[in-house]
Nucleic acid binder design. Structure first.
Length: 478
RNA sequence: GGCCUCAUGGUCAAGCGGUUAAGACGCCGCCCUCUCAAGGCGGAAUCACGAGUUCGAUUCUCGUUGGGGCUACCA
């Protein structure tokens, strides 16, 4: 069997769409699972849509996600160039060859004539008007500078059929297909032509792409057949939706990979989540590394229906990755978000990290989560009232002086020591330690709920700060 | 409109003629706990509809309905 070669062929639109990322992932996984190559090709034949810096976005998104391509514009390879605009001349040669083979023809129709073909329902289908122009006449007119395009010549009768590995047999009547433009008047090929030429020339064995091409694939097959080339294996993937009726779109900012990174999602969590949208591994795994995905990847686990992107589940998965990190790694990855927070440079980030690691799902939750450490505002003494904790204002009045005194006597002011000493003290006093810690936490933060317990927070704040806050709260009680 | 295509809880989904119809997210409850999380345990919630085929349909066939895609000198 020939080597498996798959490709990801994005247009440089300036951002990495999550749907595109999933397509790239599946193409990568399929290739790697089968010991093959994964190729990156840039489809930039539409000059008007080119966006500055778009190439870098594609390269970095892929690499940061762990999808290392074996061949591509920036890494080279034996089948380059890998950017379509650099292959322009080649397409024209093949288009001319296709004309000789009867699979295409020159067309000189004006925009106006094309529009006149529109029927009462607003539909339009090209009428093969220029097919009857002789080759001599066409060449003469081109020589005279008349603008032209090259159209595919699709049979008027017959049915085309092919096998898709996900959807099975697809049959389309030629009559439902149009003589699309293969070469535009600017000499550039359209997707309809370039993808066929490139996939063949780059020896792509399996074409993996979205279902938007499911019904136009017969047109491409016609060309493979006309050239006498072997058709690739097709694997079409269902769309990722925002909700039941809308696709994930750039418009709503819910499809951009970079936006998710900036919001504090991890690359590995995104790629993992996206892998699960439309594919279920045999062992039902949820959290997987890329090597694990490569091992598990199989086409039979791919679903045929569009799936809805659920950011709640993505958040959960991201949280799982966060929790699995050791503290050091967490601090490193969260650095930019800590910098945006009030605790940066003020408290021990390592200690703060320990406090919040299990309490956030995305990194951008950090500033809000840690803000309480630096904000100590006036609060209602009623917060001490809590039956379940056996706490009340009166209890606070009696406990707080002891807590402060005990804390004052601690030299090694760290969580473990504070906790042990205070627990012992509670025992001595005959009160539940949870009551003592509850009172202390309220007095220390003025908040009903906080990430972390009283002693952990005291550890971070330091002895001086802790005692000053507690004293302030105590004074407030009298 | 025409053509292609899809259809299991709110969401992602397993299932491939006989099952108490998995699992995950979310939701609810309990346990644990220095509050909140995390963790542990448990619960509610699904085969779109209608005809067939079959001893028996979530599973096969057809239709209906609903969704998605294509129908560009965009990819």
């Amino acid at each position: 069997m020939e080597k498996v070669r798959t490709r990801f062929a994005p247009s440089p639109t300036g951002f990495m769409h999550l749907g595109g990322l999933r397509t790239a992932l599946y193409a990568y996984l399929y290739a790697k699972h089968n010991g093959g190559d994964f190729i990156l090709r840039i489809e930039d034949t539409d000059r008007e849509r080119f966006v500055e810096g778009a190439l870098e976005v594609i390269y970095s998104s892929l690499i940061n996600s762990g999808l290392k391509y074996d061949e591509g514009p920036d890494v080279g390879g034996d089948y380059g160039p890998y950017t379509q605009s650099e292959r322009k001349e080649m397409y024209m040669q093949y288009a001319k060859k296709l004309i000789d083979l009867g699979g295409a023809y020159y067309c000189f129709c004006t925009k106006e004539r094309l529009e006149s073909l529109t029927d009462e329902n607003g539909n339009r289908k090209y009428d093969k008007h220029c097919l009857k122009i002789s080759k001599e006449e066409a060449e003469e007119r081109i020589k005279n500078g008349e603008p032209f395009v090259i159209r595919q010549n699709i049979p008027e009768k017959g049915v085309s059929s092919y096998e898709d590995l996900i959807f099975g047999t697809i049959e389309v009547d030629y009559a439902d297909l149009e003589d699309n433009i293969l070469i535009k008047s600017d000499g550039m090929p359209t997707y309809n032509f370039a993808n066929v030429i490139d996939d063949h020339l780059m020896k792509i064995s399996h074409v993996i792409r979205g279902t938007e091409y499911l019904s136009s694939t017969p047109k491409y097959n016609l060309m493979y057949d006309a050239f006498g080339w072997e058709r690739p294996v097709y694997i079409h993937l269902p769309t990722i939706m925002k909700d039941a009726t809308r696709k994930l779109s750039k418009r709503y900012g819910d499809a951009n990979f970079d936006d998710f990174i900036n919001k504090g999602y991890l690359e590995e969590a995104i790629i993992n989540y996206v892998a699960l949208l439309g594919w279920c591994p045999k062992n039902n795994a949820e959290k997987m590394t890329i090597p694990e995905m490569i091992e598990l990847f199989d086409l039979s686990g791919i679903s045929k229906s569009p799936s809805i992107f659920d950011d709640v589940k993505l958040r959960w998965l991201n949280g799982e990755y966060l929790k699995a990190m050791d503290n050091e790694e967490f601090v490193k990855r969260a650095e930019p978000f800590f910098k945006n927070s009030s605790v940066y440079g003020k408290y021990d980030i390592g200690k703060v990290a320990k406090l919040i690691k299990n309490r956030i799902e995305i990194l951008s939750d950090i500033p809000e989560k840690v803000a309480f450490l630096t904000e100590f505002n006036d609060f209602d003494n009623a917060l001490y009232e809590n039956n379940k904790q056996k706490s009340s204002v009166e209890v606070a009045k009696t406990l707080l002086p002891t807590i402060i005194e005990t804390l004052n006597g601690i030299d090694n002011f760290t969580n473990d020591v504070i906790f042990a000493t205070l627990s012992e003290k509670a025992n001595e006093l005959g009160v539940k330690s949870k009551t003592l810690f509850y009172v202390m936490r309220i007095a220390l933060t003025g908040l009903e709920v906080t990430p972390g317990g009283a002693t952990e927070i005291a550890d971070i704040l330091g002895k001086e700060d802790t005692i000053s806050r507690l004293t302030k709260s105590l004074n407030k009680l009298n």
